[in-house]
């Protein structure tokens, strides 16, 4: 699938430039409403902080978006976010590699 090939390139090449245009803290603010202010999760809502690498985060969001992974709300949510936004969020939440 084309998207799968493109995304790692996006991550490597474009992330710093995108981070200036999009505010990662502001984007992540939406996630915090359920996943907690530090991304720690609660009541079965998974933690997102330090849980995975950037590539894993992007792959997971892509799977939610494509209905390839069972979800309650995440499919409906990820379909509202662009590749750029997901990349910025991945950088914000992923553990240091």
């Amino acid at each position: 699938m084309m998207l799968r090939v493109l995304l790692p390139c996006l991550l490597l090449a474009a992330a710093p430039a995108l981070a200036q245009a999009l505010d990662p803290v502001l984007l992540a603010g939406a996630c915090q409403g359920c996943h907690g202010v530090a991304g720690q999760g609660s009541h079965g809502i998974p933690q997102i902080k330090d849980a995975q690498s950037r590539a894993e985060f992007v792959a997971l969001m892509q799977a939610f978006r494509a209905n390839q992974r069972e979800a309650t709300v995440m499919g409906r949510i990820t379909r509202g976010y662009t590749d750029e936004q997901i990349t910025v969020l991945a950088t914000h939440f992923a553990r240091a590699q």
């Binding site: 915090q32 409403g33 359920c34 996943h35 907690g36 202010v37 999760g41 609660s42 009541h43 079965g44 809502i45 069972e70 309650t72 709300v73």
Partner: peptide, 27 residues
């Protein structure tokens, strides 16, 4: 089966949302 799981999870996640957002504001 999926239906029961879905409704159960969303009830649980509702509690999770409430705990997270009130903690963000007042915790």
């Amino acid at each position: 089966e999926r239906r029961q799981q879905h409704r159960q999870l969303e009830a649980l996640y509702a509690d999770g949302w409430y705990a997270s957002i009130t903690n963000e504001m007042f915790g």
